[in-house]
Amino acid sequence: MTTTRYATSSGTTARKVPLASRSGVFLVLLLFSVYTLIPLWWLLVSATKSSGDLFGDGGLWFSHFDLWTNIRAVFHQQDGIFGRWILNSVLYSAGGAFVATLISAMAGYALAKYPFRGRDLAFNIVLGAVLIPASMFALPLYLMFSSIGLVNTYWAVFLPCIVSPFGVYLARIYAADGVPYELLEAGRVDGASEARIFWRIAMPVMSPALVTIFLFQFVGIWNNYLLPVLMLNDDKLQPVTVGLAGWRNGFENGIPYTVTLTGAVLSLTLLVIAFLPLQRFWRSGLAAGSVK
């Protein structure tokens, strides 16, 4: 479908598009790109400035290049707690996403490949839960966790993060189409246990979906703010988002703006390094989540 469309657009009609219309469209898209990029550009440039230069000018161009000094300052602030925050973020995100993926794969596979009573009901409940945003659960979770003394522990952030209805939904869709019954039956005829069939046959076939689930959950946990800020008072347990927000509001306590700005840039750089190569999966998951 799209190929025919592109074929004609590059063939007959492309010549018909007047230059005025082309440049008009380009201009509007460019304008919005500028709106999108200027804040990021400002952040990047600001991270290279000393405190003095930061307050000095309009701020959209470099002055004296002090990035390395700033980075050193970030890692020295509060005895190097920034490194700990990054580590916490990695721990919550990678650990949470890994367990969530595994649990979702098991549940999605069971919902796709085993007929049992109540299966449709179970899947509809999962589907309903996909629509409820995680932030809606944060405060109720806080109330519940504080009544059982779980607040201010790693578990308080980790446990809610390993439940992903969206992951189950994706895993089910993928297992339903991607894992053939013949393969499972062949495994059963060979006398393999159901667990073994899942591990050795279903999981490898489902791996593209699993990567997508992992990425979604990883980014979701990494970007989360409300849940950890409610749950964690102790700054040694906090992820980098909560830690940096604390620094931002700690200007009165002598935390320079440059340190917070550079910390923000560092945390973003890490995310970019980790995820740029995997962008393909991330976008395919977005499409599956929105269009299907």
Partner: peptide
């Protein structure tokens, strides 16, 4: 086996999504 595969998610779903709603 299906129920065993569903168990971890089911338990966590109940504990992390249904329970907080009921508790609230």
């Amino acid at each position: 086996s299906a129920l065993l595969f569903l168990l971890p998610f089911g338990l966590l779903f109940a504990a992390m999504m249904l329970a907080p709603i009921c508790y609230s």
